[in-house]
Amino acid sequence: MKEYKILFSGTPGAGKTTAIGAVSEIPPVVTDVPNTDPGYAKAYTTVGLDYGQLTLDTGDCLRLFGTPGQARFDFLWRILGRNALGLIILLDNSRPNPLADLEIYINGFGEALRSMPCVIGVGRHDQGNTALDDYGLWLMERNMILPVLPVDVRRRADVVLLIDVLLAELEFHIRKGECSHVE
């Protein structure tokens, strides 16, 4: 049996645990503890990692990992990112400065993003002062083009679309022979 993984990262409270739960065939394994950080309006927060999985019809296993969102855990992002098929960054548009949040994850995964497909899902996109298209412009200023899609992680279809886009990116990587990170 072969194992593959997709990584979910992003702002605390953006819904990584919920997104994994929306598509996982098992109840997500979570490592949440009561939140003591007043910067994030949530009762519990992930301190280790979240885990879900899908068994493929080939008998292989797709593992879905959610990273803790806080930047102090960025060492864990890089470890989990090794050999991942791709990365989904979930952001919360209702936060004070979601583009600054995006910068944390773009920088945190920096080198890995050169070869790893990545999709950005923006939650609560109808709230806050940042337009969805501002993310694309922000990335353009950094010479990056990454898919940016609105998402409601409570809706399975939205999470599936994020993964589907990630797979489309991966498909193109494969066609161009850029999938060296995949063992």
């Binding site: 593959y4 493929l56 292989d60 599936v160 993964i163 797979l167 494969i174 022979g177």
Partner: peptide
Amino acid sequence: LQESTEHRHFGSGLLGSIRRALGI
């Protein structure tokens, strides 16, 4: 790369099976 069995299998096999698992 286009013709490699390994890549072809990876492309159509793995991605297809993930999509099927997700109901796409």
